[in-house]
Amino acid sequence: MVAVNDVMLDVQHLSMRFGGLTAIDDLSFIARRGDITALIGPNGAGKTTVFNCLTGFYRPSVGKLEFTQASGRKFLLERMPDFRIARDAKVIRTFQNIRLFTGMSVLENLVVAQHLRLTRASGYAVAGLLHLATYRKAERRAVEHARYWLDRIGLTTAADLAAGNLPYGSQRRLEIARAMCAGPELLCLDEPAAGLNPRESDELSDLLLDIRREHDISVLLIEHDMSVVMQISDHVVVLDHGACIADGAPAEVRADPAVISAYLGTAEEDAAAMQQGRQG
């Protein structure tokens, strides 16, 4: 067992510019192994951009993103193409606007996520085409693994339905299960509670805590739902205008004046905007 609380993800001086727009400005933070680290901040603070840099969908303008696996293997994520980050570094993400394979069944979504292992077991399709026992066994194992996650997220009876026809909350859970099926070391969740009702949010919190406890993984979380953030995260990083304005335990961050002003600032603007809307 590796010591917990060692640094897993070390983000140093990350900047991301789109033309003249600076989405992230010299951001540094760390996430420790075994922690649930939350990335919060007002809309447009650059949270999803951080995710996109971490998972290789954007190439950062400046900065170093060092990821250390439990085995001690190090990866410089800013240099790797997106699919390799998922495949080799095992940093798996979900998306703010859910990206399931909507035309495929729920079970297929989970089996596809085990693509790498299965492809190897199918002897790059040769053993599979010959219908060899080794492949059949591997596929059975993949289905069993999928069933485990279906049980966990309560979608076992929906296994053979089209993923796109599931209700919104179930789609969110399915996307998390799919990411788990890909065997992550670091699970990056982009607003998993968005659009969920309070009961579903609570269930989600429980699910995430259980996942972390049972599966020996770490979680990086973008979330707007403060009840979820405060309830489950060990460490909170607050972004505003692409820069880190606070970093610490949930309780500390909540009391931080800079955070309050960032949030209240937007709240005031919101209130002002609402007032105007009413008058107009």
Partner: peptide, 28 residues
Amino acid sequence: RMRRLPTGRAWEALREDEIACKSLGMNP
């Protein structure tokens, strides 16, 4: 038969959502 193998499922997954495929470690 190919459709029922990982490679075939990857084809269909790619048709459905290339970005999601990449996020699961497939090389498109």
